[in-house]
Design a binder for these strands. Structure first.
Length: 577
RNA sequence: GCCAAAGUAGCUCAGGGGUAGAGCAACGCUCUCGUAAAGCGUAGGCCGUGAGUUCGAAUCUCACCUUUGGCUCCA
């Protein structure tokens, strides 16, 4: 028996599900059903809506089919035969037409179900395990992924080699649910959204704001240290600005409707770049002042379809950690290298060290000379290679205005998130007629690079919550220290401590509730506060604290001064705890 | 925007054509406590919004809003 791949198992499961569904609901038309990461799906055109309860019956029918020991048989047929066979299946006919003429048309049959399919499959359902799959959800999906096509009903399932692997996967899903930033955001009182006040708009609560401030303070600090200047620009701009930039032409769908001021249309900004360019153009620029590196935590608003909104990860108003680098062509290579190095450095500080690059190159329709594209693309590639990053190239995947690098970071449970983007722009310098005077006295066009390292503060915050499961490193924790007097009598000593520690700039609180100490500890644990200071008679008498970490470790009889010094050191070193 | 499901107290959830339920949180009182929940009590809701069916709607129907899972799109 040949080795069975997990893809074969999943793909075969999809066929079995299709057999179950077509057997259960007459009149069902089948579309496509591939294996995917972790499982499979199949798209159906159903005569009636599918209910959650239906999944149970489909599931049990699938189990019966698997236990029936049916073999998967492949037959190669002529196009004519296939057309006759699928005369009732319009989606299959469409797929059939798409098969290149020099390729065989093959069918796979198991039990009562025959599908147009390239394969491969398992040899028999006996090679599958009825206990190693689970149907997960029902979803709508456009036929062939096109918005204008009819919507089909998709059933997602997960399938594995054996029940143990299935259990492991389901457990991992539970872990993901526990880390869900929307749950933790509420439980830890970090942020909220409000349907009455507008969906997709984020309200940062005091604790969320503490974290954001810690991120932003660090961000500003390292930007200055890396040779950037910081800008502040307006939130709205007149139509002229967006006409000139071209956004009203190619980005209109994502922009909010204009507001009228003194008979002029003003648009709320979906991007910061035109504003930075306005500043650039306040002066004649010499080659001597380039490169300019201008950064801004710029809040932008973009219209997102209602169904696309998702917690902090997909919102309608967000703050980009944006910057524009304006430089001469000869400076490009160094600049890109620096941006990449800077970015990796920043990711490391936040606890992400697994980073992968994606290079997108020149598409068919684009602006800018071929030479400029080549130069830009090669500088991107060189930078990736110099940093030793593994990367993939998306040929022709760049925007019309320039090539780009995107960085994806891997989180604590192995998921990839697209965050950093470094993009060339050959469009805006033209449109805004940006110039600099070169050493030969002639006016020349500068290169412009957009870059966002964290991407957006909101999305980054969401990823950060999930990465740390809410237990942030000390330097980011909204409350770094919670003082827990064992009884009311020691509140005063606790208050003294509070003042001393707060004085040093540490985020500290005292729990003066009439809870017992155990309950106070429990509450602090649930809030994932890194340091708990338990203080009672012993500590008050000796000017010490009993330190409890959220990991459960403890160190008793610690001198107050030493605790403060150690804590400051840990905050400074950005250690986890 | 599209397909499907959901919305009940601050939070997590039960109930379901005939006076609205629990736990936690909040508030009050008692206890003054040593490393993950002390005890008792009080208050809290137009059952997402609007219309309809009905003697009567949180419950049934429709529309809308929002959320969730997808599709499309993307920082």
């Amino acid at each position: 028996m040949a080795d069975i791949s997990i893809e074969q198992i999943r793909h075969s499961m999809a066929h079995i599900m299709a057999e179950a569904v077509t057997g259960m609901i007459p009149g069902t038309k089948v579309a496509i059903g591939p294996s995917i990461e972790n499982g499979f799906y199949y798209d159906f055109d159903l005569p009636r809506p599918l209910l959650e309860e239906d999944l149970e019956e489909i599931s049990s029918r699938m189990k019966d089919i698997i236990k029936g020991n049916f073999s998967f048989t492949k037959t190669v047929v002529s196009r004519k035969e296939a057309e006759n066979l699928f005369s009732d299946e319009k989606y299959k006919l469409e797929l059939l037409k798409a098969i290149p003429l020099n390729e065989d048309v093959s069918l796979y049959t198991q039990g009562n179900f025959t599908d147009l399919c390239r394969g491969p499959h398992v040899e028999s359902t006996s090679q599958l395990n009825a206990g190693s799959f689970k149907l997960l959800s029902i979803a709508g999906a456009y036929w062939r992924g096109k918005e204008t096509n009819p919507m089909l009903t998709r059933i997602y399932g997960t399938a594995w080699k054996n029940p143990k692997e299935l259990r492991l996967y389901l457990k991992q899903r539970e872990e993901m649910e526990k880390r869900d930033h929307r749950k933790l955001g509420k439980a830890l009182d970090l942020y909220s959204t409000h349907e009455e006040a507008g969906p997709g708009l984020i309200y940062w609560h005091p604790k969320g704001a503490r974290i954001r401030l810690a991120i932003e303070d660090y961000w500003r600090d390292v930007h200055y240290k890396n040779g950037y200047e910081l800008l502040y620009t307006p939130h709205v701009g007149k139509a002229w600005l967006w006409e000139t930039s071209g956004h009203l032409g190619f980005y209109n769908e994502s922009m909010y409707s204009p507001m009228e001021v003194d008979e002029n249309d003003y648009f709320i900004k979906p991007m910061n770049c035109p504003f930075h360019i306005m500043i650039y153009k306040t002066n004649i620029r010499s080659y001597r002042e380039l490169p300019l590196r201008w950064a801004e935590l710029g809040t932008v608003y973009r219209y997102e379809k209602s169904g696309a909104l998702h917690g902090l990860l997909r919102v309608r108003g967000f703050t980009q950690d944006d910057a524009h680098i304006i430089c001469t062509p000869s400076q490009v290579e160094d600049e890109i290298l620096e941006v990449l190095r800077f970015s990796l450095d920043m990711w490391k500080s936040f606890g992400f060290s697994d980073v992968k690059a994606y290079l997108s190159t020149r598409p068919e329709k684009c602006v800018g000379s071929e030479e400029a594209w080549a130069r830009a693309t090669s500088s991107l590639q060189k930078a990736i290679e110099a940093e030793g990053l593994s990367y993939e190239t998306d040929e022709g995947g760049g925007a019309f205005y320039g090539p780009k690098i995107d960085l994806k970071i891997r989180d604590a449970i192995g998921r990839e998130w697209q965050m950093t983007t470094v993009q060339f722009d050959f469009n805006l310098p033209e449109r805004f007629d940006m110039n600099f005077v070169d050493s030969d006295g002639k006016e020349k066009r500068p290169y412009m690079i957009h870059r966002a390292l964290l991407g957006s503060i909101e999305r980054f915050f969401g990823v950060l919550i999930e990465h740390y499961a809410g237990a942030f490193p000390v330097w980011l924790s909204p409350v770094q220290v919670r003082i827990i007097p064992v009884a009311e009598a020691f509140n005063e000593y606790g208050e003294n401590l509070l003042k001393q520690i707060r004085q040093k700039g540490v985020r500290v609180e005292i729990d003066k509730s009439d809870n017992r100490m155990n309950a106070k500890i429990r509450n602090a644990q649930k809030e994932k506060i890194p340091y708990m200071l338990i203080v009672g008679e012993k500590e008050a008498e000796t000017s010490t604290v009993s330190l409890r970490l959220r990991t459960g470790e403890q160190e008793n009889g610690l001198a107050v001064g030493k605790f403060i010094d150690d804590t400051l050191q840990k905050i400074n070193d950005k250690v986890l705890i």
